[in-house]
Write a protein that binds this DNA or RNA. Structure first.
Lengths: 347, 347
DNA sequence: TTGATTTATTGGAACGTTCCATTTATAGCG
DNA sequence: CGCTATAAATGGAACGTTCCAATAAATCAA
């Protein structure tokens, strides 16, 4: 079947009785070669068990066909969904996305980015890890490799970002809680070194402002963006003298944690304390009680990011516009007795 | 900062006033070069904004430092956990794992594998997609690239597999249900074209046999391995004349679906119908009622798979032993009123 | 038939590394 | 001082492709 040493186009050429250039042309699907020749060559390729060496090709070619996706936390289903959305688009464009996980660790991220650059990726889609330094992408930009940020952005950076309208989403959710009659509100989870956090918290505060919620009645508890973090937030908040009666959570994981902590205290989300999440991951719908959450169309943002990347590569530019995705509040049980079921909105 | 065109070792050599060979040596951390020279070279590397071209290097070197991880469903947190376990090990070994998702699609898988081979991966860790044909890995084996299967295996294949003791896990879980007093049992979800399915169903049947459960009282419903699939399974099972009172589910996703469908009918898992899952994903613990499930130590299996791969690469062999991971039943609420809390076991 | 044009095919020079065989410099020793 | 032994640095060929310029073959116009 396959010969001993790795077969090259030279072996194919010999086998098919043509020149290596002809083989190369066939490999690239050039219309210049005579159909019969092409058939002959393709047969030889099959016979010698040839595998194309993209590394060698990239030595001559301008662009590779791989794009790197660098994700801060693959175990969060939210990011997995994002990745899947992008994959769909890239597959159709004949581009292969390689995914790498940084586990929210800037050092690891540095290594991963370096590695991807060394592989010669055509572009990079990144959801930056917490604590990424502003200069982390300087070298990559200098090398002319297009980068787009997905879901998260960096404080002062010219790199285009594709993200949901965090401010508006948080506003919508907070308004919803206030309309339900809550007057002492909390914002749970996340930390201020994340731009997303600033945006979501900003939306929360704006709504509070708009409805004249006094500053003293706004409880803000930073914390890990995980179930565990959520549990801790609730404990902290309930310990104060005039505890809040409702909370907007930084993301769904935090919200799940809050609901868990409530149950541990014999309280129920929705009736004893209102909880709203952010991201609307698939689980939100299936939780009990079902979680009210801000839907951000994750897969859609992934597709959008992929399209932007493709366009950047094509027009060999390193610049593109930001894109802010529409959000909508999906009202379920965790925020209190039902009235209506979905409040849509486009940004 | 960075020069116009991409810098190469030649540029560095010129900048540092040494030969390209010296630069190459420094890049590889050879002890042959004088420390002062190394420092000089490293400075030059920094100055010209050099990025190493691994493609070019691989043209000469035997092995690349990238390993491909091909996963059938990244949105399943179970597989994401697996991936994360492997990453830990690889990182420590200075190897970069690139992850790709096949979305349970054999055609997509073919493309992904081809692409990884073209990139010149040193090895491949694969959780094969459903319906993978036995010959899918022939060419890869012929090329001498080591492959290990994780979590799933292929019917008749010499490729080593790292997987949990599915048979034993299913046995354990079924026994648990029988001990709780159930006499009409169901096995929900999965389909017979998966080896894992055969193994888990086998364990279920063995336990039934051991406790003399008549064949007529065993209900087996195949279905999608998702929440949706689980819901459908329950509907089907409850429609028969003498419906089962307990079910072992192919995996946790199916179990969640079953619990959801129960609630829709006003029934509660644990009291009205016993449910046991498989995999023990993180959510299982947090569900309500908490899901009894077979824990398989996902991350541990991932680490094991990574180690096996590393060893195969090092000893340049394409063969290795299978590895069957220990399992344990984690008893929670969904299987009925508590008695004990965890039944451990090592295979 | 001949030259011009089009269609297929081909050799050879890159591309950016590594690695072997040398060369050059430095030190050690009697 | 001459010789060997060791340490440090180097030139050049090779790796498997692409692509340009060139050639060869086939077709056409006159």
């Amino acid at each position: 079947m396959a010969s001993r040493a790795k077969a090259t186009i030279l072996d194919i050429a010999r086998e098919a009785g043509v020149s290596k250039s002809t083989v190369s042309l066939v490999l690239q699907g050039s219309g210049l070669i005579r159909p019969e020749t092409a058939v002959k060559v393709r047969k030889a390729i099959e016979d010698v068990g040839y595998v194309y060496n993209r590394g060698a090709a990239n030595l001559r070619k301008a662009h590779s066909n791989v794009i790197g996706m660098v994700i801060n936390d693959l175990t969060n289903p939210f990011f997995a969904e994002l990745a899947v959305g992008m994959e769909r688009v890239f597959q159709a464009a004949g581009v292969v996305p390689f995914i790498a996980n940084t586990a929210e660790n800037p050092v690891r991220q540095e290594e991963v980015l370096k590695s991807m650059m060394e592989q010669g990726v055509a572009g990079l889609i990144v959801s930056p890890a917490r604590g990424t330094t502003p200069g982390a992408f300087r070298r990559i930009e200098a090398a002319g490799v297009p980068v787009v940020f997905a879901m998260r952005r960096l404080p002062e950076s010219r790199i285009p970002a594709i993200a949901p309208d965090n401010h508006r989403g948080a506003c919508l959710a907070t308004e919803h809680l206030i309309r339900k009659g809550h007057r002492r509100l909390a914002f749970f989870g996340g930390s201020s070194d994340l731009v997303v956090y600033q945006e979501r918290l900003g939306g929360f505060l704006e709504a509070c402002e708009a409805f004249a919620i006094p500053v003293a009645d706004r409880t803000i508890v930073e914390g890990e963006t995980s179930r565990k973090g959520g549990m801790a937030c609730l404990e902290t908040a309930l310990a104060i003298s005039e505890p809040p009666t409702a909370a907007l959570c930084f993301n769904d994981a935090v919200a799940f944690g809050v609901m868990l902590a409530l149950r541990k205290r014999g309280l129920e989300a929705g009736t004893d304390f209102a909880v709203v999440g952010f991201d609307d991951v698939a689980e939100a719908e299936h939780y009990s009680p079902a979680l009210t959450s801000v839907a951000v169309d994750t897969a859609g943002l992934g597709e959008r990011a992929a399209h932007v990347m493709l366009k950047m590569i094509q027009s060999r530019t390193t610049r593109a516009e930001d894109h802010i995705g529409a959000v909508s509040l999906v009202v379920r049980e965790s925020s209190g007795p039902n009235r209506n079921s979905q409040v849509g909105d486009a940004a």
